[in-house]
Design a protein around this nucleic acid. Structure first.
Length: 574
DNA sequence: GCCGTTTTCGGCCCGACTGTTTTCAGTCG
């Protein structure tokens, strides 16, 4: 079985967890965790490079030793270091580290003193009040551990971005309306537009502190107030989302916003940079000695370490600091840059509105064109179109375009890419359309070779224009299928095709790393809503967020082009 | 384990909170 980057990363993560238990050098542990992240977010498949006899690229945080381990894992499927560590540590103990209040020291102490090394045993020991025999553990920890283990089977720990957005939007509105409130910002992974969000961190600048706290903790959706102090409160909402609110003085608001926006890796990187300059960054500002030299705005904080402001979506320590230093930060695409939408459905298949309603809704949010891209016949559950029904829709769109002003409807299809790479409709029909969006909706479990070949063959088709939701993932239930994205990007470039970034919050697909690959290869990305009802166009904001995480600028996005320019680009020349 | 115009050793981000203590270790973000 081929070993991919994700598997290499998971080996490194497990080594880090086990070293954690051994209480090894914390910097050595961090080196493994950093390497895991680097490998995981890499666009090129390392095992493939090695198999092709190529040199590993020089990667930050990966020196001779870890490069050797990557080679070992890629060629043998094993890692001797990991095998040894697994033998040395009791099985199951690493799981303890995922529980609140348990780190390596306490986990080890529990094992040493009680012989407990599985979650089940731990649960029983806590129930029997045996945990409090261990030094440093008391009643409260015991209770928290029981709760955490019992909740484990329940809800996912991370929430979809769209769910977080709904909550964030209403909380921001609530807090902005409170008397004495000057500033409200949602920080954390939400602000960085991550596809899932663990909890919400809200920063507030305000005078009437108590009134703000009251308003927050009495919010309708609050199920439990978990903590409430003078400057900080934590609540659990009915939806299972945890929300932290922090009141922050104006003079350090920017520093706090940087700090709580993260990512952790970005924060570490900028603090290191500060240190090199004899400075110190914390959530309370940038300091030279004990004197604060910056803090009220994010711009100030970055300027203090010699950098321009960096957009939150880029803050992953994935090259943004070097780019900022070189004055080469991308000017990221904005929602307002989108001129149209190239993927939506109507009642003709599995949508809920008429074509006219969809067009008018798109016009209302400022778009000047949309493409109707119904499913094709192979997707029977969606009542996909056969040639006859598609031809009828083409006529209907012609009639609508004569009657509508301010919006143009393009004729398209979301045609199934069959298992052998053929398209689900005949050439002569596809040739009558403005664009052909191809999608994989079946046979997700093909081998990497077959899946890749299937998609490349589909792109060879003369009418193929855009590859829809390329990875096929569904958040959180379906992992991306095994596809050689580097090959797909190269092929798209060679054939003059485009890749879709599906903005539906369950998909957000292209992945951010693949956006960067496409950009580097000069393949344009279509940010598409995949709308099935009029209000789905609102999802475009999530697609734009994802595109920004992928460093995309206005010119990297196909549907920022005005209609005339778009029509030229849609004509395949290769 | 990585890294380097303070280099091949000696550093490696920072502060707060929690629960358990009686001055703080361990955990967390």
């Amino acid at each position: 079985m081929p070993v991919h980057n994700a598997e290499i990363a998971s080996v490194f993560r497990e080594i880090a967890d086990l070293l954690d238990l051994e209480q090894a050098n914390p910097f050595r542990i961090r080196a493994y965790r950093n390497a895991a992240r680097t490998v995981e977010e890499l666009a090129t498949d390392l095992a493939e490079l090695i198999a092709a006899g190529k040199e590993l690229p020089r990667l930050p945080g990966i020196g001779a030793d870890l490069a050797g381990k990557i080679r070992e894992i890629a060629t043998t499927g094993h890692c001797a270091t990991l095998d040894q560590l697994r033998k040395a540590e009791p099985p199951g103990l690493v799981e303890f580290l995922t529980l609140p209040g348990l780190g390596p020291k306490r986990a080890k102490a529990i094992y040493d003193e009680l012989g407990v090394h599985t979650l089940n045993q731990l649960h029983r020991a806590a129930k029997d009040h045996r945990l409090r025999q261990v030094a440093g553990l008391g009643e409260a920890t015991e209770r928290r551990i029981i709760e955490a283990i019992e909740a484990r089977a329940g809800k996912p720990v991370r929430h979809k971005l769209s769910v977080a957005a709904k909550i964030a939007d209403s909380l921001v509105a609530l807090l902005r309306g409170a008397p004495g409130v000057r500033t409200v910002e949602v920080a954390g992974s939400y602000r960085r537009s991550k596809e899932t969000v663990g909890d919400l961190d809200i920063l507030v600048g305000a005078d009437k502190v108590n009134e703000v706290m009251d308003r927050f903790t009495r919010y309708d959706e609050v199920a439990e107030v978990m903590a409430r102090g003078p400057t900080r409160a934590t609540v659990m909402l009915r939806s299972g989302m945890q929300v932290d609110l922090r009141l922050v003085p104006d003079e350090v608001f920017g520093a706090a916003l940087v700090y709580f926006t993260g990512s952790k890796a970005h924060n570490i990187a900028i603090r290191r940079r500060a240190q090199e300059r004899g400075l110190k960054i914390s959530e309370y500002g940038v300091f030279r000695g004990t004197r604060r030299i910056a803090g009220s705005t994010e711009e100030q904080v970055y300027r203090a370490i010699g950098l321009p402001w960096i957009a939150p979506e880029l803050r992953e320590d994935q090259g943004e600091i070097a780019a900022a230093e070189a004055g080469a930060l991308p000017v990221l695409v904005k929602l307002a840059d989108l001129a149209g939408d190239l993927h939506c459905h109507s009642r003709a298949t599995d949508g809920h509105n008429t074509i006219r309603e969809m067009a008018e809704a798109a016009r209302a949010i400022g778009l000047s064109y949309i493409a109707m891209t119904e499913h094709s016949r192979h997707l029977t559950v969606a009542h996909g179109l056969d040639p006859r029904r598609l031809l009828r829709q083409i006529d209907e769109i012609d009639r609508l375009n004569e009657n509508l002003s301010g919006i143009t409807i393009l004729k398209g299809i979301e045609v199934d890419i069959l298992e052998d790479g053929r398209l689900d409709l005949p050439d002569d029909v596809l040739g009558r359309l403005d664009l052909v969006v191809g999608a994989v909706h079946s046979a997700f479990n093909l081998s990497r070779e077959r899946q890749t070949k299937r998609v490349l063959l589909a792109m060879d088709h003369p009418h193929f224009t855009i590859l829809a939701h390329p990875s096929g993932r569904l958040i959180p239930e379906r992992q991306p299928f095994d596809l050689d994205m580097a090959a797909v990007v190269r092929h798209a470039k060679a054939r003059g095709c485009f890749l879709e970034l599906n903005a539906h919050p369950d998909r957000l697909d292209l992945l951010d790393t693949h956006c960067r690959m496409a950009k580097e290869a000069g393949v344009l990305v279509a940010i598409s809503s995949d709308a099935h009802r009029t209000f789905d166009f609102a999802n475009l904001r999530f697609g734009v967020g994802q595109a920004r995480r992928g460093w995309l600028e206005r010119d990297d996005v196909l549907n920022t082009r005005p209609l005339a320019r778009l029509r030229t680009l849609l004509k395949r020349t290769m």
